Amino acid sequence: MRGFTWRAKQRHRPGLEVMAATGRTHGFESLEEMRLLVALDFMRASEVLSQPFRLDFEHVHGQSWHIPDFLAMVGSGMWLLDVRPMELVKEEDALKFAAAREVATACGWRYSVVAGWRPHVWSVLDHLSSRRRPVRDLLDMRTQLLNVIGGQEGRVMTFSELANATSVPSVGRANIVRLLWHRELGVDLGSPLRDSSLIWEA
């Protein structure tokens, strides 16, 4: 609904984010929107539309309009999303978000306002996303890692234990991150990713 423009001294940070899940670039108007695109990529959103439509609506004080930030297909459902840091949400924003929620409900979609991130979640997702691109696994690290941790049902290992159990631990570390991104291994996103983080087979 709007073009993404760049100019000197603008206060926001627009750009294009490449999503592995869709295989395309997607426009964003702020760093907060870019972070949401990374999260949607991790959630394997099969389709994402930036600023998908303009919503014109009436309310007790007159008329208003709103352009939601994203419409995403996650799994078999649609998710309408707005991004606004909590400290920047004003009364007129809350009215627009309420209207967007009503439209989403009428369409059978989910609706959320992304107003911030729980501690550590974004930093972990940012690190995992660094290994999302396809690569050649010349040392067959994927098989090594899954054989080690999948040897016993319900087995849990620390990040360092799992990496050290491979033939080349430094390469094993990078591949653990890759398998975490692709959800073949699991980790608690509520804590920083460190050597003591518990890893399990997803």
Rank of each mutant, 00 (worst) to 15 (best):
L81F: 01
R44Y: 04
L16Y: 14
F57H: 06
L37K: 08
V156L: 10
P169V: 04
H120K: 09
D137M: 02
S160G: 00
H12F: 11
L16D: 08
P52D: 03
G77N: 07
E17C: 04
V177S: 07
D140Q: 06
G23R: 14
L180F: 11
A21Q: 05
S170F: 07
M1F: 08
V60Q: 10
D195R: 08
R7G: 15
R101E: 14
L193I: 11
V89G: 06
D188A: 10
R194A: 12
R24E: 11
E87S: 15
E17L: 09
N147G: 00
R44A: 03
R155Q: 15
R110K: 12
G190I: 10
V38D: 03
E87M: 02
S197G: 02
G150I: 07
G154D: 03
A202N: 15
T22N: 10
M141G: 00
W122K: 00
A100K: 05
E102H: 06
R173W: 13
Q63F: 04
V103T: 12
G154M: 12
S129A: 15
E58M: 03
M157D: 04
F57C: 08
W79N: 05
F159D: 06
A165R: 12
E58H: 04
R178S: 14
M141N: 10
D41H: 05
G150P: 03
D93T: 05
M43I: 01
P134C: 05
S129T: 03
L193G: 03
E87I: 01
D195Q: 10
R194I: 04
C107G: 01
T22C: 00
W65R: 05
R110D: 15
M73T: 12
V103H: 15
D82F: 00
D137S: 04
R142T: 13
A165Y: 04
V74P: 02
L125E: 13
D41V: 07
S30D: 03
R11K: 09
E161F: 09
T158F: 02
H12V: 08
T22A: 02
R24S: 03
A20Y: 14
T166M: 05
L55P: 09
L88M: 07
S30H: 09
M141A: 01
F42N: 01
F28I: 00
W65V: 00
W181N: 09
W200E: 01
V48H: 12
W6I: 11
I199C: 01
L180W: 11
A94S: 14
V38Y: 13
L179T: 13
W122L: 09
R132I: 06
H120C: 09
T25V: 11
G190D: 06
V156W: 02
W79V: 06
V74K: 01
S130L: 14
A202V: 03
A165Q: 07
E58G: 13
R84P: 02
G154F: 09
V89W: 00
S160P: 00
M34G: 07
E32T: 05
V121C: 07
R13F: 12
M78C: 06
W65I: 00
R133V: 06
G116A: 11
V113N: 13
G15E: 14
F97N: 07
L31E: 12
Y111E: 07
A202Y: 06
P192Y: 06
A115I: 05
E87N: 13
S130V: 04
